[in-house]
Design a protein around this nucleic acid. Structure first.
Lengths: 344, 344
DNA sequence: CTGAAAGCGCTTACAG
DNA sequence: CTGAAAGCGCTTACAG
């Protein structure tokens, strides 16, 4: 089946390509009759505008790029869903890339998306990322950029985040409120802003409650593909190092679930011996036993907000308007479940 | 920052655009010296070929489309990861769309991808899809198409699947082997081939073992966004209808987990009173309690295989070769866990 | 109301 | 070894 072009339609109707183009785009300066004829034939021939040519002419592709550290991850796959659902409403397509927490890959992928001439980029940074030239390249090209969740504060672009520090404070305060005196923390990797903030929230809650902050109680998880295993390993190590722990605040649910599994294998009772709070509210957390107290992190909403912001910036650019970067902070909430429910 | 074109480079070096283009593509008929100069300047100016122009000329975009029923789903997100990882190796980008199990949306999305002129399409069908004109459109355009998991047998394209009937047979046989006599089945929606095949495998296992097949023991789940809730509802209904059940084979893990939750709330002991086998091996299934016996469905591998197949077909088309559709069947295995472990 | 013409930024067959 | 020219399929400012 030959692919139909404007020219084919024009020749069959004995009119010009210009008129065909205008008729299909409903320009006011084309007669009703011609419009009818053109549209009918276009439909019959199953005409589809060649996106390559349209893109070249209009300098936009109605396509955006999304770079994400991991796809198989309850939070991130919800973000993807949010972005795609919103993009579709505005007629945009989404190219998705996975950085695998690697800076090198992330950089290459930004390069790829720029060559591809996407209309904008949404990104959540890899753990490794500590240099931001690749992001500044995007901005230097005056291409809209929105970061979410794992952001870099010093990059001048819009950001969709939650208040990680506050949420972590809340989580830790909850442990304190139910009577925990010696609370450990499994933090995320060293670089990401959100794992720093969650750590700081934990620390501040301790100090505000006159509990000593002990760096030896802070363990690190990279939170990549091995989250679950890392949680197990850390929990076992923690039990060896400090058997007087009565609460743990853990950076991510999947790590928390790994920790719970290991603790239960060791005969530790949750919540009786140790109370646990996770972070992110993976679906899984509501069905394991005991169910996990956690912070709800609204992935779908963050995805929607990220695309909406990007779309605003794309529109502003088209009109040649300047756009001041904006940071949107979404609400979180503590969800208390069995892993912290101690019947006093 | 102005965007750099071949022409900018040509003008600065006082040579033709043709030569610049050839130099960058390492044509043999350009002098070493010119090549050096061109490449250096291209690098300095941060030249990036305009993909829109390249696509228009070469009639390919190095981009493929992927339509998937749901993204937030352990199996499907693994497939996405498999496809993207493989695509990246070959320099292809992936546009992802979610059909939400809707035929109308799926059709529209195929249309979108065709307008976008992607080089090929990978799809897993929506539950609702019973007509295949949109798929035949793809084939009629001689555009490579690969289906996976939720396929339509009569569409003439390559397919990546598992042997659902055999896997379901195995799952049911396992229940019989451990002593179950009256086994219910929570099947998927009516249309998808894989839920039909799983049902048929269940039925055949019963009959081969001289157990009566009772249609009243077969319940339906749409397996969309509400899988977990559907599992709960079905389990409660099942207990009302038939309190003599001693085993259930369930179409998807998430439904199975919903069912287990409801059963446990009703005081039913798993596996002592009722044994349960799921399907797909979601990560979650290994950490709930009791852990769930299930069929491992290799999502990541299916994704990789799907892209590989698509890539072969894209290459064949470029060379003008005919490509006979191929069906690849990947291996599955039964993973026995606590939900079927009865100590006799 | 219609259409000729220019141009988006490349690639490549062809001439010299 | 270099470059003029044609062309991919559109869009749109401009002329009539």
């Amino acid at each position: 089946m030959k692919i139909v072009t404007l020219r084919d339609i024009a020749e069959q109707l004995n009119i010009s390509v210009t008129t065909v183009s205008k008729a299909l785009k409903d320009y006011p300066d084309v007669s009703k009759k011609t419009k009818m004829q053109v549209r009918e034939l276009a439909k019959t021939l199953n005409y589809r505008p060649n996106a390559f040519a349209v893109n070249l002419r209009t300098k936009e592709s109605k396509t955006i790029g999304l770079i994400i550290p991991v796809i198989v991850h309850h939070f991130f796959s919800n973000v993807i869903k949010g972005i795609i659902s919103q993009a579709e409403k505005k007629g945009y397509l989404v190219i998705i890339l996975q950085s695998d927490e690697s800076y090198t890959l992330e950089k290459k992928q930004v390069e790829l998306l720029l060559s591809q001439r996407v209309d904008g980029i949404i990104i959540s940074l890899a753990n490794e990322t500590a240099k931001y030239n690749h992001l500044n390249d995007i901005i230097a090209q005056d291409k809209p950029l929105v970061m979410f969740d794992k952001i870099a504060k010093i990059v001048k672009c819009s950001k969709i985040i939650i208040d990680d520090r506050k949420a972590a404070y809340l989580a830790t305060q909850h442990l304190i409120d139910i009577g925990c005196k010696r609370i450990a923390h499994f933090r995320g990797a060293l670089l990401p802003q959100n794992s720093i903030d969650r750590f700081l929230g934990y620390k501040k809650a301790l100090l505000d409650n006159n509990l000593p902050y002990d760096p030896a109680l802070v363990y690190i998880c990279e939170c990549g593909d091995m989250s679950f295993e890392e949680g197990k390993k850390n929990a076992i190590q923690l039990m060896e190092d400090h058997d007087d722990i009565d609460g743990i605040f853990i950076n991510t649910d999947l790590v928390a679930i790994g920790a719970m599994t290991a603790l239960q294998n060791l005969g530790v009772k949750i919540p009786e011996d140790i109370c646990i709070v996770g972070f992110s509210n993976w679906f899984m957390s509501s069905v394991i036993s005991p169910s996990l107290t956690t912070i709800n992190q609204p992935g779908f909403e963050m995805g929607k907000a990220a695309f909406k912001q990007l779309f605003r910036e794309i529109k502003a650019r088209k009109k040649g308007k300047h756009f001041e970067p904006k940071t949107v902070v979404l609400e979180t909430e503590l969800i208390t479940r069995a892993s912290t429910k101690i019947t006093v």
